[in-house]
């Protein structure tokens, strides 16, 4: 099942704008390797879940996959064949707003070539270009 919040204060939100780059959440913090986005945009809960499934299936329950983003934002849509007006549509999807540089997923407990393949599979499920990064141990 796609990710979504358990409780929300407001059912619908405005679309908003994504300006700037990720100045937080842009380093590998939990695992050894991470998937960093090179674009800005929305990632739906379904896409995040698809990435997680792709990586865990590939890893055969070896190592660990960390998800660093969560879809907090509701996106509403009008039903098909509906005339315009009559108010805002119902929430249809939940998305995570990510900026360039955000680390989306992390993998730990596996070797580099395995992690690269797993993160590559996740990247193919993402709606923007991504790259693999390593944890910075020194300065």
């Amino acid at each position: 099942m796609a990710l979504m919040p358990k409780r929300v204060k407001w059912r619908k939100s405005q679309r908003g704008k994504l300006r700037g780059v990720a100045m937080r959440g842009n380093e590998v913090s939990y695992g050894e390797y991470g998937l960093q986005t090179l674009g800005t945009g929305w990632i739906t809960g379904r896409q995040i879940e698809a990435g997680r499934v792709a990586a865990t299936h590939f890893l055969h329950r070896e190592g660990r996959v960390y998800i660093r983003i969560f879809p907090h934002k509701p996106v509403s849509a009008k039903p098909l064949e509906t005339r315009m007006g009559k108010g805002k549509g119902d929430p249809e999807d939940w998305v995570a707003c990510v900026r360039e540089g955000q680390v989306l997923f992390e993998v730990g407990g596996v070797e580099e070539n395995v992690a690269r393949s797993a993160l590559g599979r996740i990247a193919s499920k993402m709606p923007m270009r991504c790259r693999m990064i390593r944890r910075r141990h020194g300065l």
């Binding site: 842009n26 090179l38 540089g101």
Partner: peptide, 11 residues
């Protein structure tokens, strides 16, 4: 002594 190095958003 190098105390801290700040990197850009892509590291």
């Amino acid at each position: 002594l190098v105390k801290e190095v700040q990197y850009d958003h892509l590291g």
